[in-house]
Amino acid sequence: MSDFSDALSVSSSGLRAQATRLRVLSENIANVDTPGYHRKTIPFELQGSKDSVQQVETGKVDLDQSDLEQIYDPQNPLADASGFYNGSNVDLIIELADAREAQQSYEANLKMFEQTREMSSNLMDLLRR
């Protein structure tokens, strides 16, 4: 039964990591038009030794330090003397593509979790006979 619990543990860690990634991506998408907003990124890390089952964990949320978009709008109260102000550095296309990838990874982990649970249940049924 240890193999089943290991598989459930690995897939549930993947579910948690992708759910966190989706949350961060949704914050980026929500702030695509927020002046001065820096895109958030979240790294994945493997936890566990080579002898044990490795699980996916999320690291610390970081801010993308790439240059902010310069927007020309002299009427905006945030504009400087030359009429420019800092927009965000969020690229909506990249965020949507990353969100789609995270969704597919989440679904794959969920499928693995369901199949492992079903195999465990079928094994218990066989052992009861």
Rank of each mutant, 00 (worst) to 15 (best):
N86Y: 12
L25R: 05
N28V: 02
G14D: 00
Y72P: 01
I94G: 14
L22T: 06
S105W: 01
R21D: 00
A7L: 04
K60H: 06
A79N: 09
M124Q: 13
E101S: 12
L123K: 13
E101G: 09
V10D: 02
S5L: 12
L126A: 14
D64S: 04
A19I: 01
F113I: 11
L15G: 10
D6Y: 11
I93P: 11
A17D: 00
V32W: 02
T116P: 05
K40C: 00
E118G: 09
N109L: 07
I71N: 09
Q115C: 09
D98T: 02
A30K: 03
D67I: 06
Q54C: 09
D80R: 07
S2T: 11
D91H: 11
D80G: 04
R117E: 05
V53S: 07
R21M: 01
T34R: 14
L8V: 03
R100M: 11
D51Y: 08
Q75E: 10
E114T: 14
N122T: 12
S82T: 13
Y85R: 07
A30Q: 01
H38L: 05
F84Q: 07
A79E: 10
E45G: 03
I93E: 15
S52D: 11
M119S: 07
L126F: 12
L22M: 15
V32A: 09
N89M: 03
M1D: 09
Q47W: 02
R129M: 09
S120C: 12
S26V: 05
E114N: 15
A97G: 09
S5T: 10
A99L: 08
F4H: 03
F4P: 01
V61I: 12
F44Q: 06
E45Q: 14
D67F: 08
D98P: 06
V24N: 01
L96N: 11
L25M: 06
E95P: 04
G59P: 02
V53C: 02
Y85H: 03
L92D: 06
S9A: 12
R100V: 08
Q115Y: 12
P35A: 07
L126E: 10
P35F: 06
L127W: 08
R21V: 01
D91G: 12
E107Q: 07
S52H: 09
A102Q: 04
F44V: 06
E57H: 13
R129S: 10
Q104C: 04
L63N: 13
H38I: 04
S11D: 09
P35N: 01
G48K: 08
S9L: 13
I94D: 15
L63M: 13
E57Q: 15
Q55W: 08
S5K: 09
S88H: 07
K111Q: 14
F84L: 07
N31P: 08
D51S: 14
N89W: 03
G48R: 03
A79V: 10
M124H: 11
S5G: 00
E45N: 12
E57P: 01
N31A: 06
T58Q: 02
I94K: 15
V10G: 00
L127S: 13
G36T: 08
F84W: 10
D91I: 06
L96T: 11
D125A: 15
S12H: 10
M124V: 13
N122P: 04
R39Q: 01
Q70W: 02
T58F: 00
D125F: 14
L8R: 05
A19R: 08
N86E: 13
N122A: 13
D125Q: 15
S5R: 06
D98M: 05
D73W: 02
K60G: 00
S120T: 15
L25C: 07
F84I: 04
S88N: 05
P35E: 04
E27A: 10
